[in-house]
Design a protein around this nucleic acid. Sequence first.
DNA 1: CGCGGCCTTGAGAAATGTCAACTTACGTGG
DNA 2: CCACGTAAGTTGACATTTCTCAAGGCCGCG
Lengths: 247, 247
Amino acid sequence: MTATIELTSPKAAHACGRQPGDNYCDNCKVRSLAVCAALGPEELPELDDIVHHTRADGKTTFIHQGETAESVFSVTEGMVRLYKLLSDGRRQIIGVAMPGDFLGLALHNRYGFSADAVDDVALCRFDRREFDNLVTAKPHFLRRLHEFATHELVIAQEQMTLIGRRSAEERVAAFLVAMRERWTRIKGPSVTIQLPMQRIDMADYLGLTIETVSRTLTKLARDGVILIVPEAVRVLDEKKLLSIARA
Amino acid sequence: MTATIELTSPKAAHACGRQPGDNYCDNCKVRSLAVCAALGPEELPELDDIVHHTRADGKTTFIHQGETAESVFSVTEGMVRLYKLLSDGRRQIIGVAMPGDFLGLALHNRYGFSADAVDDVALCRFDRREFDNLVTAKPHFLRRLHEFATHELVIAQEQMTLIGRRSAEERVAAFLVAMRERWTRIKGPSVTIQLPMQRIDMADYLGLTIETVSRTLTKLARDGVILIVPEAVRVLDEKKLLSIARA
DNA sequence: CGCGGCCTTGAGAAATGTCAACTTACGTGG
DNA sequence: CCACGTAAGTTGACATTTCTCAAGGCCGCG
Protein backbone atom coordinates (compact mmCIF):
# COMPACT_ATOMS: atom_id res chain seq x y z
CA MET A 1 0.00 0.00 0.00
CA THR A 2 2.38 2.69 1.17
CA ALA A 3 5.67 2.34 -0.61
CA THR A 4 7.37 5.63 -1.36
CA ILE A 5 10.97 4.56 -1.69
CA GLU A 6 13.70 7.02 -0.89
CA LEU A 7 16.10 6.81 -3.79
CA THR A 8 18.69 9.26 -2.70
CA SER A 9 19.44 11.01 0.52
CA PRO A 10 21.03 14.21 -0.69
CA LYS A 11 22.46 15.06 2.69
CA ALA A 12 25.51 12.91 1.99
CA ALA A 13 26.28 14.70 -1.25
CA HIS A 14 26.46 18.07 0.41
CA ALA A 15 29.19 19.56 2.55
CA CYS A 16 30.83 22.99 2.83
CA GLY A 17 32.44 23.62 -0.54
CA ARG A 18 29.48 23.00 -2.80
CA GLN A 19 29.42 24.84 -6.11
CA PRO A 20 26.37 25.91 -8.05
CA GLY A 21 25.45 22.93 -10.19
CA ASP A 22 26.37 20.46 -7.51
CA ASN A 23 22.79 19.96 -6.47
CA TYR A 24 19.73 18.37 -7.96
CA CYS A 25 17.53 21.41 -7.88
CA ASP A 26 19.87 23.28 -10.25
CA ASN A 27 19.09 20.80 -12.96
CA CYS A 28 15.42 20.35 -12.24
CA LYS A 29 13.39 20.46 -15.43
CA VAL A 30 10.27 21.73 -13.73
CA ARG A 31 11.81 24.21 -11.33
CA SER A 32 10.37 27.17 -13.15
CA LEU A 33 6.89 25.71 -12.81
CA ALA A 34 7.21 24.56 -9.22
CA VAL A 35 7.13 26.43 -5.92
CA CYS A 36 10.93 26.24 -6.01
CA ALA A 37 11.05 28.96 -8.64
CA ALA A 38 10.68 31.46 -5.80
CA LEU A 39 14.19 30.68 -4.62
CA GLY A 40 17.21 32.24 -6.25
CA PRO A 41 20.30 30.27 -7.28
CA GLU A 42 22.00 31.17 -4.03
CA GLU A 43 19.10 29.76 -2.03
CA LEU A 44 18.66 26.52 -3.90
CA PRO A 45 21.20 24.63 -1.80
CA GLU A 46 19.01 25.21 1.24
CA LEU A 47 16.19 23.49 -0.54
CA ASP A 48 18.48 20.80 -1.77
CA ASP A 49 19.52 20.16 1.79
CA ILE A 50 16.10 19.05 2.85
CA VAL A 51 14.72 17.44 -0.29
CA HIS A 52 14.28 13.69 -0.61
CA HIS A 53 13.89 12.41 -4.13
CA THR A 54 11.27 9.75 -4.26
CA ARG A 55 9.43 7.70 -6.81
CA ALA A 56 6.02 6.09 -6.60
CA ASP A 57 4.80 3.65 -9.17
CA GLY A 58 1.31 3.06 -10.42
CA LYS A 59 -1.38 2.94 -7.77
CA THR A 60 0.93 3.52 -4.83
CA THR A 61 -0.82 5.59 -2.21
CA PHE A 62 1.62 7.98 -0.61
CA ILE A 63 -0.75 10.36 1.18
CA HIS A 64 -3.45 8.87 3.37
CA GLN A 65 -6.46 10.97 4.28
CA GLY A 66 -6.66 11.46 8.04
CA GLU A 67 -3.07 10.55 8.80
CA THR A 68 -0.65 12.96 10.41
CA ALA A 69 0.85 15.17 7.75
CA GLU A 70 4.59 14.69 8.06
CA SER A 71 5.62 15.43 4.50
CA VAL A 72 4.84 17.79 1.69
CA PHE A 73 5.60 17.04 -1.93
CA SER A 74 6.43 18.62 -5.22
CA VAL A 75 5.68 16.56 -8.30
CA THR A 76 8.41 16.42 -10.94
CA GLU A 77 7.20 13.61 -13.20
CA GLY A 78 4.01 11.73 -13.82
CA MET A 79 0.48 12.20 -12.60
CA VAL A 80 -0.96 12.06 -9.12
CA ARG A 81 -4.61 11.89 -8.17
CA LEU A 82 -5.87 13.51 -4.99
CA TYR A 83 -9.12 12.28 -3.60
CA LYS A 84 -11.45 12.13 -0.68
CA LEU A 85 -13.26 8.96 0.30
CA LEU A 86 -16.62 8.74 1.99
CA SER A 87 -17.17 6.07 4.59
CA ASP A 88 -19.18 3.94 2.18
CA GLY A 89 -16.48 4.00 -0.48
CA ARG A 90 -17.76 6.77 -2.70
CA ARG A 91 -14.81 8.72 -3.97
CA GLN A 92 -14.34 12.26 -5.18
CA ILE A 93 -11.14 13.13 -6.96
CA ILE A 94 -10.45 16.70 -5.91
CA GLY A 95 -7.47 17.27 -8.11
CA VAL A 96 -4.91 15.87 -10.46
CA ALA A 97 -1.32 16.88 -9.80
CA MET A 98 1.23 17.04 -12.59
CA PRO A 99 4.86 18.12 -12.84
CA GLY A 100 5.38 21.39 -10.99
CA ASP A 101 2.40 20.91 -8.72
CA PHE A 102 2.68 21.02 -4.97
CA LEU A 103 0.96 18.73 -2.47
CA GLY A 104 0.39 19.78 1.09
CA LEU A 105 -0.34 23.48 0.79
CA ALA A 106 -2.46 23.38 3.87
CA LEU A 107 0.17 23.16 6.56
CA HIS A 108 -2.31 21.37 8.77
CA ASN A 109 -1.77 18.47 11.08
CA ARG A 110 -3.61 15.87 9.10
CA TYR A 111 -3.99 15.24 5.42
CA GLY A 112 -7.46 16.12 4.24
CA PHE A 113 -7.22 13.81 1.26
CA SER A 114 -5.39 10.80 -0.08
CA ALA A 115 -2.99 10.83 -3.00
CA ASP A 116 -1.71 8.10 -5.23
CA ALA A 117 0.32 7.70 -8.36
CA VAL A 118 -1.64 7.33 -11.58
CA ASP A 119 1.40 6.32 -13.57
CA ASP A 120 5.05 6.41 -12.55
CA VAL A 121 5.68 9.47 -10.50
CA ALA A 122 8.75 11.31 -9.32
CA LEU A 123 8.39 13.43 -6.24
CA CYS A 124 10.43 15.78 -4.14
CA ARG A 125 9.48 15.02 -0.59
CA PHE A 126 10.11 17.44 2.26
CA ASP A 127 9.72 16.98 5.94
CA ARG A 128 6.90 19.28 6.85
CA ARG A 129 8.77 20.80 9.77
CA GLU A 130 11.90 21.46 7.77
CA PHE A 131 9.90 22.82 4.89
CA ASP A 132 7.95 25.01 7.26
CA ASN A 133 11.15 26.42 8.70
CA LEU A 134 12.34 27.34 5.25
CA VAL A 135 9.00 28.95 4.47
CA THR A 136 9.13 30.93 7.69
CA ALA A 137 12.62 32.13 6.93
CA LYS A 138 11.79 33.19 3.39
CA PRO A 139 8.73 35.37 2.95
CA HIS A 140 9.04 35.34 -0.83
CA PHE A 141 8.81 31.57 -0.69
CA LEU A 142 5.70 31.83 1.47
CA ARG A 143 4.36 34.27 -1.04
CA ARG A 144 4.82 31.76 -3.82
CA LEU A 145 3.11 29.08 -1.77
CA HIS A 146 0.25 31.48 -1.21
CA GLU A 147 0.01 32.07 -4.93
CA PHE A 148 -0.15 28.34 -5.45
CA ALA A 149 -2.83 28.04 -2.80
CA THR A 150 -4.99 30.78 -4.26
CA HIS A 151 -4.53 29.31 -7.72
CA GLU A 152 -5.70 25.96 -6.39
CA LEU A 153 -8.62 27.74 -4.80
CA VAL A 154 -9.62 29.29 -8.10
CA ILE A 155 -9.44 25.88 -9.76
CA ALA A 156 -11.49 24.35 -6.97
CA GLN A 157 -14.15 27.00 -7.34
CA GLU A 158 -14.34 26.35 -11.04
CA GLN A 159 -14.58 22.64 -10.40
CA MET A 160 -17.47 23.22 -7.99
CA THR A 161 -19.27 25.11 -10.69
CA LEU A 162 -18.50 22.37 -13.19
CA ILE A 163 -19.82 19.62 -10.96
CA GLY A 164 -22.70 21.54 -9.50
CA ARG A 165 -24.13 23.20 -12.55
CA ARG A 166 -23.05 21.54 -15.76
CA SER A 167 -24.19 18.52 -17.74
CA ALA A 168 -22.18 15.37 -18.24
CA GLU A 169 -21.19 16.42 -21.73
CA GLU A 170 -20.05 19.85 -20.58
CA ARG A 171 -18.07 18.30 -17.76
CA VAL A 172 -16.26 15.85 -19.98
CA ALA A 173 -15.50 18.48 -22.62
CA ALA A 174 -14.25 20.92 -20.00
CA PHE A 175 -12.10 18.22 -18.51
CA LEU A 176 -10.50 17.45 -21.86
CA VAL A 177 -9.82 21.11 -22.51
CA ALA A 178 -8.32 21.57 -19.06
CA MET A 179 -6.09 18.53 -19.48
CA ARG A 180 -4.91 19.79 -22.78
CA GLU A 181 -4.04 23.15 -21.34
CA ARG A 182 -2.06 21.54 -18.57
CA TRP A 183 -0.09 19.34 -20.96
CA THR A 184 0.55 22.35 -23.13
CA ARG A 185 2.01 24.19 -20.17
CA ILE A 186 4.35 21.32 -19.47
CA LYS A 187 5.19 19.85 -22.85
CA GLY A 188 3.93 22.29 -25.44
CA PRO A 189 0.82 22.06 -27.64
CA SER A 190 -0.53 18.91 -29.27
CA VAL A 191 -3.81 17.70 -30.73
CA THR A 192 -3.45 14.54 -28.68
CA ILE A 193 -4.59 14.81 -25.09
CA GLN A 194 -2.82 12.21 -22.98
CA LEU A 195 -5.14 10.52 -20.51
CA PRO A 196 -3.03 8.24 -18.35
CA MET A 197 -5.87 7.88 -15.88
CA GLN A 198 -8.72 5.46 -16.30
CA ARG A 199 -12.38 6.16 -16.91
CA ILE A 200 -13.14 5.69 -13.25
CA ASP A 201 -10.75 8.49 -12.40
CA MET A 202 -12.40 10.82 -14.84
CA ALA A 203 -15.75 9.78 -13.44
CA ASP A 204 -14.76 10.37 -9.83
CA TYR A 205 -13.23 13.69 -10.81
CA LEU A 206 -16.32 14.89 -12.64
CA GLY A 207 -18.91 13.55 -10.22
CA LEU A 208 -20.18 11.03 -12.74
CA THR A 209 -20.08 7.26 -13.24
CA ILE A 210 -17.78 5.32 -15.54
CA GLU A 211 -20.65 4.49 -17.82
CA THR A 212 -21.72 8.10 -18.22
CA VAL A 213 -18.15 9.15 -19.00
CA SER A 214 -17.84 6.36 -21.53
CA ARG A 215 -21.14 7.17 -23.19
CA THR A 216 -20.28 10.86 -23.28
CA LEU A 217 -16.90 10.24 -24.88
CA THR A 218 -18.56 7.96 -27.40
CA LYS A 219 -21.06 10.67 -28.19
CA LEU A 220 -18.30 13.27 -28.66
CA ALA A 221 -16.53 10.81 -30.96
CA ARG A 222 -19.74 10.09 -32.89
CA ASP A 223 -20.23 13.84 -33.29
CA GLY A 224 -16.76 14.13 -34.80
CA VAL A 225 -15.41 16.26 -31.96
CA ILE A 226 -12.76 13.83 -30.79
CA LEU A 227 -11.15 10.53 -31.69
CA ILE A 228 -10.73 8.04 -28.90
CA VAL A 229 -7.35 6.31 -28.85
CA PRO A 230 -5.75 4.22 -26.12
CA GLU A 231 -4.59 6.32 -23.17
CA ALA A 232 -5.50 9.48 -25.01
CA VAL A 233 -8.00 11.43 -27.06
CA ARG A 234 -7.31 13.31 -30.25
CA VAL A 235 -9.09 16.59 -30.86
CA LEU A 236 -10.75 16.71 -34.28
CA ASP A 237 -13.00 19.71 -33.90
CA GLU A 238 -11.41 22.11 -31.49
CA LYS A 239 -13.99 24.84 -31.93
CA LYS A 240 -16.84 22.53 -31.10
CA LEU A 241 -15.01 21.08 -28.14
CA LEU A 242 -14.35 24.53 -26.76
CA SER A 243 -17.91 25.66 -27.32
CA ILE A 244 -19.21 22.70 -25.35
CA ALA A 245 -16.61 23.17 -22.64
CA ARG A 246 -17.17 26.90 -22.25
CA ALA A 247 -20.97 26.68 -22.23
CA MET B 1 -26.27 47.63 -8.92
CA THR B 2 -22.98 48.62 -7.35
CA ALA B 3 -23.57 50.74 -4.31
CA THR B 4 -21.05 50.21 -1.58
CA ILE B 5 -21.21 53.46 0.26
CA GLU B 6 -18.19 54.71 2.12
CA LEU B 7 -19.42 55.63 5.55
CA THR B 8 -16.25 56.86 7.09
CA SER B 9 -12.92 57.82 5.72
CA PRO B 10 -10.66 57.01 8.62
CA LYS B 11 -7.76 58.98 7.22
CA ALA B 12 -9.21 62.17 8.60
CA ALA B 13 -9.46 60.78 12.12
CA HIS B 14 -5.81 59.96 12.23
CA ALA B 15 -2.80 62.16 12.78
CA CYS B 16 0.41 61.92 14.79
CA GLY B 17 -0.71 61.60 18.37
CA ARG B 18 -3.08 58.66 18.12
CA GLN B 19 -3.49 56.52 21.21
CA PRO B 20 -4.37 52.85 21.33
CA GLY B 21 -8.14 52.76 21.30
CA ASP B 22 -8.36 55.67 18.93
CA ASN B 23 -8.95 53.43 15.99
CA TYR B 24 -11.78 51.25 14.82
CA CYS B 25 -9.84 48.03 14.65
CA ASP B 26 -9.16 48.12 18.39
CA ASN B 27 -12.84 47.74 19.06
CA CYS B 28 -13.63 45.30 16.29
CA LYS B 29 -15.83 42.49 17.56
CA VAL B 30 -14.58 40.01 15.02
CA ARG B 31 -10.91 40.88 14.99
CA SER B 32 -9.92 37.61 16.61
CA LEU B 33 -11.72 35.70 13.87
CA ALA B 34 -10.52 37.81 10.98
CA VAL B 35 -7.20 38.03 9.17
CA CYS B 36 -6.51 41.09 11.29
CA ALA B 37 -5.79 38.91 14.31
CA ALA B 38 -2.31 38.41 12.89
CA LEU B 39 -1.45 42.01 13.69
CA GLY B 40 -0.41 43.05 17.17
CA PRO B 41 -1.85 46.11 18.94
CA GLU B 42 1.11 48.19 17.81
CA GLU B 43 0.45 47.30 14.17
CA LEU B 44 -3.29 47.85 14.16
CA PRO B 45 -3.02 51.55 13.34
CA GLU B 46 -1.36 50.63 10.07
CA LEU B 47 -4.38 48.60 9.18
CA ASP B 48 -6.67 51.28 10.40
CA ASP B 49 -4.93 53.72 8.12
CA ILE B 50 -6.00 51.91 5.00
CA VAL B 51 -9.37 50.48 5.97
CA HIS B 52 -12.62 51.86 4.61
CA HIS B 53 -15.71 50.90 6.54
CA THR B 54 -18.51 50.11 4.21
CA ARG B 55 -22.01 48.74 4.31
CA ALA B 56 -23.94 46.90 1.67
CA ASP B 57 -27.63 46.21 2.01
CA GLY B 58 -29.64 43.29 0.78
CA LYS B 59 -28.86 42.17 -2.75
CA THR B 60 -26.19 44.77 -3.45
CA THR B 61 -23.48 43.28 -5.61
CA PHE B 62 -20.10 44.63 -4.56
CA ILE B 63 -17.79 42.22 -6.36
CA HIS B 64 -18.37 41.61 -10.05
CA GLN B 65 -16.90 38.52 -11.66
CA GLY B 66 -14.44 39.46 -14.37
CA GLU B 67 -13.88 43.03 -13.25
CA THR B 68 -10.51 44.35 -12.21
CA ALA B 69 -9.90 43.50 -8.60
CA GLU B 70 -9.24 46.81 -6.91
CA SER B 71 -10.39 45.98 -3.42
CA VAL B 72 -10.28 43.18 -0.92
CA PHE B 73 -12.76 42.86 1.93
CA SER B 74 -13.14 41.55 5.41
CA VAL B 75 -16.70 40.85 6.53
CA THR B 76 -17.65 42.13 9.97
CA GLU B 77 -21.43 41.75 9.97
CA GLY B 78 -24.03 39.93 7.94
CA MET B 79 -23.82 37.33 5.25
CA VAL B 80 -22.30 37.50 1.79
CA ARG B 81 -22.76 35.06 -1.02
CA LEU B 82 -19.98 34.39 -3.50
CA TYR B 83 -20.94 32.92 -6.81
CA LYS B 84 -19.97 32.20 -10.35
CA LEU B 85 -22.35 32.67 -13.25
CA LEU B 86 -22.36 30.71 -16.48
CA SER B 87 -23.15 32.52 -19.68
CA ASP B 88 -26.68 31.10 -19.77
CA GLY B 89 -27.49 32.23 -16.26
CA ARG B 90 -26.82 29.06 -14.33
CA ARG B 91 -25.29 30.02 -11.01
CA GLN B 92 -23.07 28.21 -8.58
CA ILE B 93 -22.62 29.69 -5.15
CA ILE B 94 -19.05 28.86 -4.25
CA GLY B 95 -19.14 30.13 -0.72
CA VAL B 96 -20.95 32.04 1.95
CA ALA B 97 -18.94 34.60 3.84
CA MET B 98 -19.79 35.54 7.38
CA PRO B 99 -18.22 37.80 10.01
CA GLY B 100 -14.47 37.27 10.12
CA ASP B 101 -14.26 35.95 6.58
CA PHE B 102 -11.99 37.49 4.00
CA LEU B 103 -12.80 38.14 0.34
CA GLY B 104 -10.09 38.46 -2.24
CA LEU B 105 -7.50 35.98 -1.10
CA ALA B 106 -6.33 35.48 -4.61
CA LEU B 107 -4.35 38.62 -5.21
CA HIS B 108 -5.13 38.34 -8.88
CA ASN B 109 -6.01 41.00 -11.36
CA ARG B 110 -9.61 40.11 -11.86
CA TYR B 111 -12.29 38.79 -9.59
CA GLY B 112 -13.07 35.18 -10.34
CA PHE B 113 -16.53 35.41 -8.80
CA SER B 114 -19.23 37.86 -7.87
CA ALA B 115 -20.29 38.69 -4.35
CA ASP B 116 -23.41 40.25 -2.95
CA ALA B 117 -25.01 40.93 0.36
CA VAL B 118 -27.60 38.42 1.52
CA ASP B 119 -28.79 40.63 4.35
CA ASP B 120 -27.27 43.83 5.66
CA VAL B 121 -23.55 43.55 5.59
CA ALA B 122 -20.71 45.50 7.11
CA LEU B 123 -17.37 45.28 5.39
CA CYS B 124 -13.86 46.50 5.84
CA ARG B 125 -12.68 47.40 2.39
CA PHE B 126 -9.01 47.75 1.49
CA ASP B 127 -7.41 48.99 -1.64
CA ARG B 128 -5.73 45.94 -3.07
CA ARG B 129 -2.44 47.74 -3.64
CA GLU B 130 -2.31 49.18 -0.15
CA PHE B 131 -3.30 45.89 1.37
CA ASP B 132 -0.70 44.12 -0.70
CA ASN B 133 1.98 46.49 0.54
CA LEU B 134 1.04 45.74 4.10
CA VAL B 135 1.11 42.01 3.40
CA THR B 136 4.52 42.30 1.79
CA ALA B 137 5.86 44.21 4.76
CA LYS B 138 4.51 41.76 7.30
CA PRO B 139 5.27 38.10 6.70
CA HIS B 140 3.19 37.00 9.67
CA PHE B 141 0.23 38.71 8.07
CA LEU B 142 0.94 36.91 4.82
CA ARG B 143 1.12 33.74 6.81
CA ARG B 144 -2.32 34.34 8.22
CA LEU B 145 -3.68 35.02 4.76
CA HIS B 146 -2.14 31.80 3.61
CA GLU B 147 -3.82 29.96 6.46
CA PHE B 148 -7.12 31.49 5.41
CA ALA B 149 -6.48 30.45 1.83
CA THR B 150 -5.65 26.87 2.70
CA HIS B 151 -8.65 26.70 4.98
CA GLU B 152 -10.82 27.91 2.13
CA LEU B 153 -9.21 25.30 -0.05
CA VAL B 154 -10.07 22.54 2.40
CA ILE B 155 -13.67 23.77 2.51
CA ALA B 156 -13.79 23.91 -1.27
CA GLN B 157 -12.54 20.36 -1.55
CA GLU B 158 -15.17 19.20 0.89
CA GLN B 159 -17.80 21.06 -1.08
CA MET B 160 -16.67 19.36 -4.28
CA THR B 161 -17.11 16.03 -2.60
CA LEU B 162 -20.50 17.08 -1.30
CA ILE B 163 -21.75 18.18 -4.68
CA GLY B 164 -20.08 15.47 -6.69
CA ARG B 165 -20.81 12.43 -4.61
CA ARG B 166 -23.67 12.94 -2.23
CA SER B 167 -27.44 12.78 -2.48
CA ALA B 168 -29.76 15.74 -2.12
CA GLU B 169 -30.67 14.76 1.42
CA GLU B 170 -27.03 14.41 2.43
CA ARG B 171 -26.22 17.76 0.88
CA VAL B 172 -28.99 19.60 2.66
CA ALA B 173 -28.22 17.97 6.01
CA ALA B 174 -24.51 18.70 5.65
CA PHE B 175 -25.33 22.28 4.76
CA LEU B 176 -27.45 22.72 7.86
CA VAL B 177 -24.76 21.22 10.06
CA ALA B 178 -22.10 23.43 8.49
CA MET B 179 -24.21 26.54 8.94
CA ARG B 180 -24.83 25.68 12.54
CA GLU B 181 -21.13 25.23 13.19
CA ARG B 182 -20.39 28.59 11.65
CA TRP B 183 -23.01 30.38 13.71
CA THR B 184 -21.71 28.62 16.78
CA ARG B 185 -18.22 29.95 16.10
CA ILE B 186 -19.56 33.45 15.81
CA LYS B 187 -22.45 33.64 18.26
CA GLY B 188 -22.27 30.51 20.36
CA PRO B 189 -24.43 27.38 20.16
CA SER B 190 -28.16 27.27 19.48
CA VAL B 191 -30.72 24.72 18.28
CA THR B 192 -31.97 27.29 15.81
CA ILE B 193 -30.00 27.54 12.62
CA GLN B 194 -30.46 30.97 11.09
CA LEU B 195 -30.93 30.86 7.33
CA PRO B 196 -31.04 34.43 6.09
CA MET B 197 -30.56 33.23 2.53
CA GLN B 198 -33.38 31.99 0.37
CA ARG B 199 -34.05 28.53 -0.97
CA ILE B 200 -32.55 29.47 -4.28
CA ASP B 201 -29.27 30.29 -2.58
CA MET B 202 -29.20 26.96 -0.83
CA ALA B 203 -30.03 25.31 -4.14
CA ASP B 204 -27.30 27.11 -6.04
CA TYR B 205 -24.85 26.35 -3.27
CA LEU B 206 -25.65 22.65 -3.19
CA GLY B 207 -25.95 22.13 -6.93
CA LEU B 208 -29.69 21.43 -6.68
CA THR B 209 -32.93 23.17 -7.62
CA ILE B 210 -35.22 25.11 -5.32
CA GLU B 211 -37.82 22.40 -5.53
CA THR B 212 -35.44 19.66 -4.52
CA VAL B 213 -34.21 21.70 -1.57
CA SER B 214 -37.78 22.43 -0.53
CA ARG B 215 -38.83 18.80 -0.82
CA THR B 216 -35.76 17.64 1.06
CA LEU B 217 -36.36 20.07 3.90
CA THR B 218 -39.98 18.96 4.02
CA LYS B 219 -38.85 15.35 4.21
CA LEU B 220 -36.41 16.13 7.03
CA ALA B 221 -39.25 17.91 8.85
CA ARG B 222 -41.64 15.01 8.21
CA ASP B 223 -39.03 12.63 9.62
CA GLY B 224 -38.82 14.73 12.77
CA VAL B 225 -35.23 15.78 12.20
CA ILE B 226 -35.87 19.50 11.93
CA LEU B 227 -38.62 22.04 12.30
CA ILE B 228 -38.92 24.60 9.55
CA VAL B 229 -39.49 28.15 10.78
CA PRO B 230 -39.24 31.44 8.89
CA GLU B 231 -35.64 32.39 8.10
CA ALA B 232 -34.38 29.44 10.10
CA VAL B 233 -34.58 25.77 10.94
CA ARG B 234 -34.72 24.25 14.39
CA VAL B 235 -32.87 21.02 15.04
CA LEU B 236 -35.09 18.42 16.68
CA ASP B 237 -33.01 15.29 16.24
CA GLU B 238 -29.38 16.25 16.22
CA LYS B 239 -28.08 12.70 16.08
CA LYS B 240 -30.12 11.86 13.03
CA LEU B 241 -29.16 15.10 11.32
CA LEU B 242 -25.49 14.43 11.92
CA SER B 243 -25.73 10.84 10.75
CA ILE B 244 -27.27 11.97 7.49
CA ALA B 245 -24.75 14.79 7.10
CA ARG B 246 -21.71 12.65 7.85
CA ALA B 247 -22.72 9.74 5.60
C1' DC C 1 -4.73 -19.57 -25.61
C1' DG C 2 -7.25 -18.15 -21.86
C1' DC C 3 -7.91 -15.11 -18.05
C1' DG C 4 -8.71 -10.68 -16.00
C1' DG C 5 -9.11 -5.88 -16.15
C1' DC C 6 -11.01 -2.13 -18.51
C1' DC C 7 -14.20 -0.25 -21.56
C1' DT C 8 -18.49 -0.05 -24.03
C1' DT C 9 -23.30 -0.73 -24.70
C1' DG C 10 -28.07 -1.66 -23.51
C1' DA C 11 -32.31 -1.76 -20.71
C1' DG C 12 -34.58 -0.34 -16.96
C1' DA C 13 -34.59 2.19 -12.36
C1' DA C 14 -33.95 6.03 -9.57
C1' DA C 15 -32.92 10.59 -8.52
C1' DT C 16 -33.38 15.02 -9.73
C1' DG C 17 -35.08 18.60 -12.85
C1' DT C 18 -39.00 21.07 -15.11
C1' DC C 19 -43.29 23.13 -15.38
C1' DA C 20 -47.29 24.55 -13.34
C1' DA C 21 -50.61 25.27 -9.73
C1' DC C 22 -51.42 26.66 -5.34
C1' DT C 23 -50.31 28.61 -0.55
C1' DT C 24 -48.42 31.82 2.43
C1' DA C 25 -46.53 35.99 3.96
C1' DC C 26 -45.94 40.54 3.53
C1' DG C 27 -45.96 45.27 1.97
C1' DT C 28 -48.55 48.85 -0.55
C1' DG C 29 -52.08 51.65 -1.68
C1' DG C 30 -56.89 52.39 -1.91
C1' DC D 1 -58.00 48.44 7.77
C1' DC D 2 -58.67 45.71 4.01
C1' DA D 3 -57.59 44.07 -0.63
C1' DC D 4 -54.58 43.35 -3.83
C1' DG D 5 -50.18 42.23 -5.84
C1' DT D 6 -45.91 40.25 -5.59
C1' DA D 7 -42.29 37.20 -4.16
C1' DA D 8 -41.02 33.04 -1.82
C1' DG D 9 -42.05 28.53 -0.71
C1' DT D 10 -44.42 24.15 -1.28
C1' DT D 11 -46.46 20.46 -3.70
C1' DG D 12 -47.83 17.59 -7.62
C1' DA D 13 -47.35 15.47 -12.17
C1' DC D 14 -44.37 14.49 -15.51
C1' DA D 15 -39.78 14.75 -18.17
C1' DT D 16 -35.04 14.04 -18.34
C1' DT D 17 -30.65 12.94 -16.94
C1' DT D 18 -27.85 10.07 -14.84
C1' DC D 19 -27.24 5.77 -12.33
C1' DT D 20 -27.45 0.79 -11.78
C1' DC D 21 -27.08 -3.65 -13.21
C1' DA D 22 -25.87 -6.81 -16.59
C1' DA D 23 -23.82 -8.50 -20.77
C1' DG D 24 -20.43 -8.50 -24.12
C1' DG D 25 -16.09 -6.83 -26.46
C1' DC D 26 -11.26 -5.64 -26.51
C1' DC D 27 -6.62 -6.18 -25.23
C1' DG D 28 -2.52 -7.28 -22.85
C1' DC D 29 -0.20 -10.69 -20.10
C1' DG D 30 0.88 -15.01 -18.16
